[in-house]
Amino acid sequence: MPWDRNQMAARAAEELEDGWYVNLGIGIPTLVANYVGDKDITLQSENGMLGMGPFPYEGDEDPDLINAGKQTITELSRTSYFDSATSFGMIRGGKIAAAILGAMEVAENGDLANWMIPGKLVKGMGGAMDLVAGVGRVIVVMDHTNKAGESKILRECTLPLTGKAVVDRIITNLGVLDVVPGGLRIVELAEGVTEDELRAATEATLV
């Protein structure tokens, strides 16, 4: 059985080390916060906050307190606020240990595409280009294939890039892959998934 969304998030949480400052993207990456356990992890929200807390109780929403996905959130005893230039200074400056992001496509050299589909909806990159360029480690969490069953892990990306050679590790419903010289290396298979199944679902070169 391939991993489901929560199992992928739980696996991604294992990547985080005690004391890290981390940025989580929208979608499955947001779920990672539920699985950090006892580790001392500080979540950054790139609009200008460190120490992001859970969603507020109904009635406690504060219009002045939102995350980068524009959702209402809460603060913690460790929270600090700052402006967006300072926020991206810490991102670009390599102070954020890791970003966990979703993706549309990843290539075997670590190229990442997750912001635009030409001719369809054009929403914008938001902070994704800054994050992948700046943080210590870029971890992608996504389904291995798209809705049509085609591999999202490619020799070369077909969509406009968010960053060139920026991805370190890919966690999918089928397993865990690392970007290494010459292609991708299988680190781990999801429980019940065979190497042949993962290879069949992967267009990129596996070394």
């Binding site: 991206f88 200074g89 990159m125 902070g127």
Partner: peptide
């Protein structure tokens, strides 16, 4: 004109 979020903030600063 799309600007990455951090680039836009830094261009202003």
């Amino acid at each position: 004109e799309f600007n990455p979020q951090g680039t836009l903030a830094e261009r202003m600063r």
